[in-house]
Amino acid sequence: MQYRTLGRTGWKPSEIGFGSWGIGGDAWGQKDDSAGLAALNKAIDEGVNFIDTADVYGDGHSERLVAQVRKERSEPLFIATKAGRRLSPHVAAGYKDTQQLTSFVERSLRNLDVEALDLLQLHCPPTEVYSMPEVFAHLDTLVQQGKLRNYGVSVEKVEEALKAIEYPNLKTVQIIFNMFRLKPAEAFFAAARERNVGIIVRVPLASGLLTGKFKANTQFDANDHRNFNRHGESFDQGETFSGVDYETGLQAVEELRALVPEGTTLAQFALRWILMFPEVSTIIPGAKNPAQAVDNTSASKLAALSDDTMRRIQEIYDTRIRAQVQSRW
């Protein structure tokens, strides 16, 4: 495992981290705590030291699973969680309620069984929140009170990321970036580098599309967002297959498959592509069993991709994907 720098936090996270929505949340079909815990433990065995969770993943279940593993391991682990999506309704004005946001933080402190959160991220708030300095001032207060060590944001859009990094004490931005979502590299990474803001990449495999394991007739469970949120019915469409039409994504995957080196999985290839961008601090793919955890972490050992391969991936994006996603996120 290789390690990078997470902005101004002083942390050295594993370049492949662990996203725990899948093991503790309610939007990925059937879940098995024993398999999920085994996946997380295996990832740590492989050198992972950065784990991302959220208070709404399984209504705190994911946080509690992460806390259980942290207690059982001796390795130092960096735990990032998120807050804000518990607001009902989830509207920008709710983020001004300092008591409410503080209560979310205190609940995560209990779930994770810690005195201070390593990293709290606002959880994809409405765009208007990024123009509310009082929200970020309250996060500063929570740091001063010792409840947070660092804070950042998880965003849907590049424009939100650019606005967020104007706040001087914001340390990280979590953003969707993969071979179906190139806009962050084109329009955000340079600004983050200039301000020394850490970049956490989520949805790196486009909700599994970039594993190459899906077909046109693949069936997803009724409670899997890849079944019920393809058009943004429950939350932002960009969270499901990165906002790419499923059939279009399958066609692009077939073109990408031809570029994958022998002995490498498409998922590893997709993760290695992300690691070609030095601004990325860590990637947080999910894993629901130990084999998936090993597959993900193995990407850190792969050789750099050639200029020709990088150019070909860009061409596939420009030809098949750009028109669907570039202007929306």
Rank of each mutant, 00 (worst) to 15 (best):
D59E: 13
E262S: 14
P184F: 09
Q314F: 06
G60E: 07
L122M: 12
L109D: 04
L139P: 01
K31G: 02
T240P: 07
L101F: 05
V56G: 02
E75F: 08
S103L: 04
F235L: 00
S281D: 08
G84E: 06
V135C: 10
S74W: 02
F220D: 00
N217H: 14
E279W: 04
G84P: 03
W273E: 02
I199T: 05
G60N: 09
A161F: 08
Q326M: 09
V48N: 02
D221F: 15
K288H: 05
R312K: 15
K82L: 00
G60Y: 11
I165H: 12
I316K: 06
A67V: 01
R4C: 09
E159M: 04
L37H: 01
R257V: 04
V129N: 05
T248M: 12
E254R: 14
I200Y: 10
L87D: 01
M310H: 13
E255M: 11
L142D: 00
E166I: 07
P125M: 12
S298C: 09
P168W: 14
R86Y: 15
Y57M: 00
L182G: 06
A192C: 14
T309Q: 12
A161W: 13
I274M: 11
A185G: 09
A80T: 05
I313L: 14
E315C: 03
N178A: 05
S131Y: 13
Y130P: 06
T5H: 12
L266T: 01
F241M: 06
R149M: 04
S108G: 01
V69I: 15
D236P: 08
Q219F: 09
E186A: 13
G60M: 10
E239P: 00
F228R: 08
A291V: 09
N296L: 02
A187C: 05
D224Q: 09
A216P: 00
A185R: 14
R322F: 08
A303S: 07
Y57E: 01
V325F: 01
A323Y: 14
V69Q: 04
I321F: 14
Y95Q: 07
N289V: 02
G263D: 07
R230D: 09
A92Q: 01
I200D: 10
A67T: 01
I316G: 06
E166A: 12
F50N: 06
A187V: 02
F18L: 05
E72C: 03
G84L: 01
C124M: 11
L209W: 15
R230Q: 14
D318H: 13
S88K: 06
G7F: 13
P204G: 11
N223I: 10
A267D: 04
G232C: 00
F228I: 00
Q326P: 00
T264H: 06
E239L: 14
R110T: 10
A83G: 14
K12Y: 12
S103W: 03
E315N: 11
P76G: 03
L275N: 03
D224W: 09
G249H: 11
V129L: 09
K71M: 02
S14A: 14
I199L: 11
V158L: 08
T309P: 10
Q99A: 12
T264R: 11
A192T: 09
T264G: 03
D224P: 04
L87T: 06
N227I: 00
V280G: 00
V56R: 08
I284D: 06
H138A: 05
A192P: 07
M179L: 12
M310V: 07
E315H: 12
I200L: 15
P125H: 11
V158K: 05
A80V: 07
L205V: 11
